[in-house]
């Protein structure tokens, strides 16, 4: 139909030429892993950005708290105490942007410093829960059989108790509630969740074709578990960890609120502040308002981040 064109004269690069060049470029470039892929998706997701901003601000504030806070958390100021009465708590005034709390301490400084406690409890509780949960889940998922049966029955028992009730009972068991007991109580609640989640994902991995492929290649069992099953099963666990940070903060606040938290009055903690503000709700609602907002905002931040992470890691969303 069409004869081949003579191409003696130089011709502009065609689509095909450009394509060839692009292919050559690609050949030089390094591949992109799934993790890198997920990260890029995360960066483009507005939900993730909102979550990250909230969480980032929170972390920043809690790290810099001693420098940001104008005053100490424990010191009661005479100029505040002077006007402090059971039916009136002084509001904002020079030097004290949020006014006084019920004991004549600087409410603003306490709010700032409390972020530290909250982050500490949230992060440690989640980390401890994660470590033990992953350990149990990985063992159950990798070995199966009776190891799996025993471990899973135990986690089932723990799971069947409502989480807050479990945390309360654990915290109540200790003679003297302290920050450590709060962390342990909250961590223990999340252990069975992580364990179950990882075990399920591990079992799914165990049945997967690529694990079968590794087995048939003659890869050692330990390498299969550590290189193939665990990394592929961790996705949902990481997402859950982010979400657990939020619930841990809420749980810790709830424990404090119920009087099972850290007894040290010198330490500020949002949950405890909220609990104490109860008595003065009609006198000065701001005392309850600010800690409540702070808890909700931080929990929201972690939840948004977790949801965005779930979306980014979800293989079904991948094209």
């Amino acid at each position: 139909m069409t004869s081949p064109r003579g191409s003696l004269r130089p011709r502009p690069p065609t689509l095909l030429d450009r394509r060839r060049r692009r292919v050559d470029e690609l050949a030089e470039a390094s591949g992109r892993s799934l993790t890198a892929d997920a990260f890029q998706r995360l960066r483009r997701n507005p939900v993730a950005i909102v979550g990250a901003v909230i969480v980032g601000l929170f972390v920043l504030v809690s790290i810099l708290a001693p420098w940001i806070a104008p005053h100490d958390a424990a010191t009661a100021f005479p100029e505040l105490q002077r006007t402090l009465r059971p039916d009136s708590i002084p509001g904002a005034q020079p030097g004290f942007p949020l006014g006084s709390d019920q004991n004549g301490r600087d409410f603003f400084s306490r709010m700032i410093l409390a972020s530290r406690q909250t982050l500490l409890v949230g992060v440690f509780a989640t980390l401890i829960g994660l470590v033990f949960g992953v350990l149990i889940g990985a063992l159950a998922g990798a070995f199966g059989g009776w190891v799996d049966t025993v471990l899973m029955r135990v986690t089932d028992v723990l799971l069947s108790i409502p989480s807050l009730l479990l945390a309360i009972s654990i915290a109540a068991l200790t003679a003297k509630p302290s920050q450590t007991t709060v962390i342990i109580a909250v961590a223990l609640v999340s252990v069975p969740v992580f364990a179950r989640l990882l075990r399920g994902a591990m079992l799914a991995q165990r049945e997967s074709d690529h694990v079968l492929a590794a087995t048939s290649l003659g890869v050692k069992r330990r390498a299969i578990v550590l290189r193939h099953m665990l990394p592929n099963a961790m996705g949902p666990v990481i997402v859950q960890a982010t979400l657990t940070l939020a619930t841990s903060i809420l749980d810790a606040a709830a424990l404090s609120f119920l009087g099972l938290g850290d007894g040290d009055p010198a330490r500020a903690e949002w949950g405890l502040m909220l609990a104490n503000a109860q008595a003065y709700l009609d006198v000065r609602p701001a005392l309850a308002f600010w800690p409540a907002i702070a808890i909700i905002l931080v929990a929201l931040g972690f939840t948004l981040l977790g949801e965005a992470l779930r979306e980014a890691l979800d293989p079904k969303g991948r094209r």
């Binding site: 069409t2 081949p4 064109r5 191409s7 011709r11 065609t14």
Partner: peptide, 8 residues
């Protein structure tokens, strides 16, 4: 059987 014209 691609010719130059095919890419243009």
């Amino acid at each position: 059987r691609a010719l130059d014209v095919c890419g243009e």
